[in-house]
Simulated assay, not measured.
Amino acid sequence: MIDQNYRWYPVYTHSRAEKKANGELNRKGIQTYLPLKKAVKQWSDRKKIVEEPLIKSYLFVYISAREYAEVLMTNGVARFIYFANRIASIPEQQIHDLKLLLATEADLELIDYDIKPGESVLIKAGPFKGIRAELVSVHNKQRIILRLQDMGYSININTSIAFIAPL
C-alpha cells in the first residue's frame, strides 16, 4: 500500500543537470522519475541517438514533506516548483500517464507556452487508451494536442480524433 504522505513533486534542476541530479537522488535512496525522449544528434562525422530530458530542467521526486531539505541539498537540484505559493505536487495518475506516453515511442513534442483550456477527453483506443486529458487543438484529424494538468506544459502527439471521446 502506498503511504498517503508521499507524493510526486516536480523539482527544477540546474541547466543540463537533470541526469546528474537524478543519479544523486537515487544514491540517497529517493525515488525519482526523469522523463526521457530519444533524439538524433548530428555531429560533423556522425549521427547518434541519445536520450535527453523531455522537459528541460525538470525532474520528479516521490517524497514526504520531511525529505524536502534532503532533495534541496542534492547536487544539481535548484528548487521545488511552486504553483499558487505552494510546492506543487503531481497526481500519481499523471506520472503514470506520462510514463505511458513515453513508452509508446510516439513522436512527442513538448509545447512550453500556455494554451487556452478546451474540452476534457478520454482516449478510448490506440496506444494512449485510458488517458484523461484536455483537448487543446486538432490538426488534420490525426494530430492532437493534449494538456497535462499541474505541469504547465502540453504534449503534441499523433493519434486519431476517432480515438477520443468527451468526458
Rank of each mutant, 00 (worst) to 15 (best):
V71G: 03
W43V: 06
L98R: 02
I55G: 05
I30R: 04
V71M: 00
L36W: 12
T32F: 04
K37S: 05
L101N: 03
Y82M: 10
K20S: 08
Q31N: 08
L102K: 07
K56H: 15
T74I: 05
P91D: 12
K38T: 10
Q94L: 15
N75A: 12
F80K: 01
G23N: 11
A21V: 04
P91V: 00
G23T: 06
A84F: 12
Y62G: 03
K38H: 09
L54I: 07
I95R: 02
Y33L: 02
L100F: 10
Q31V: 04
T32V: 11
T32G: 12
E67V: 00
Y82P: 00
N26L: 13
L72I: 09
T32D: 04
I87N: 01
H96M: 13
I55C: 08
H96P: 13
S89L: 06
V77M: 01
S44L: 14
N26A: 13
S44Q: 12
G29A: 07
I55R: 05
Y62L: 05
R66T: 10
A39Q: 14
F60R: 00
V71C: 00
E51G: 01
V50S: 06
M73N: 13
A69C: 12
Q42H: 14
A39W: 06
K48Q: 15
Y62C: 03
P35I: 10
N26V: 11
I63R: 02
I30A: 02
R79H: 13
R79V: 08
L25D: 01
L72K: 14
R46L: 03
F80T: 07
N26T: 12
Q31G: 00
D97I: 09
I55M: 13
N75K: 14
Y58S: 03
P35G: 08
Q31S: 08
D97G: 10
R46V: 04
I55Y: 06
